[in-house]
């Protein structure tokens, strides 16, 4: 628990072959990580539509993680991670225009062998989002309308 009692809610979109395997391995190995990240598994990071991330923020997520296989070459499907590589920078620009701080969205690569890296990401990203505070856009919107 942080000082103000705020615990961020974070959604992680992970590809089945690399980062999901890493998160699984981190769990099996009992690596210490905060419980704030909820994982949605997809077959490939190339399946992740930017709309999913926007939907997650719209539904009240305080942070979102997208992670797939290391480019080049680690992708189970050959080049799905390249699609992610192309889409996510565009989405980052869009999120900034929406006023969502860059620190709330992380995208990157973690291979199936990098359980330690996954656990570290969960720890660091949770701390980072916790420091940013809640993404309380609904209340903010309501206060503006008042």
């Amino acid at each position: 628990m942080s000082e103000n009692g705020f615990e961020p809610r974070i959604v992680g979109f992970l590809c089945n072959w690399c980062t999901y395997a890493a998160s699984d391995a981190a769990g099996v190995a009992r690596m210490q990580q905060p419980p704030n990240v909820d994982v949605i598994r997809v077959m490939c990071s190339g399946r992740i539509e930017p709309a999913f991330i926007l939907k997650a923020f719209a539904e009240g997520a305080d942070g979102v993680i997208v992670s797939g296989c290391h480019p080049p070459g680690d992708c189970h499907y050959g080049e799905g991670n390249f699609k992610t590589f192309r889409r996510m920078p565009l989405l980052e620009a869009l999120l900034a225009q929406y006023g969502i701080e860059p620190g709330r969205f992380h995208w990157g690569w973690i291979s199936g062998a990098e359980a330690v890296k996954w656990a570290a990401l969960v720890r660091d990203f949770t701390a980072q989002v916790r420091a940013l505070g809640p993404l309380d856009w609904k209340r903010e919107l309501a206060s503006k309308e008042d």
């Binding site: 959604v11 997809v42 190339g46 399946r47 992740i48």
Partner: peptide, 27 residues
């Protein structure tokens, strides 16, 4: 892999077992 489903502007492609509806419902 579902890359095509993510890119289809008309939403005509369904990635079975990982459909838009399923993932949005999960979120």
């Amino acid at each position: 892999c579902g890359t095509c489903a993510a890119a289809c502007p008309a939403g005509a492609i369904t990635a079975r077992h990982f459909t838009d509806a399923q993932i949005l419902a999960q979120i």
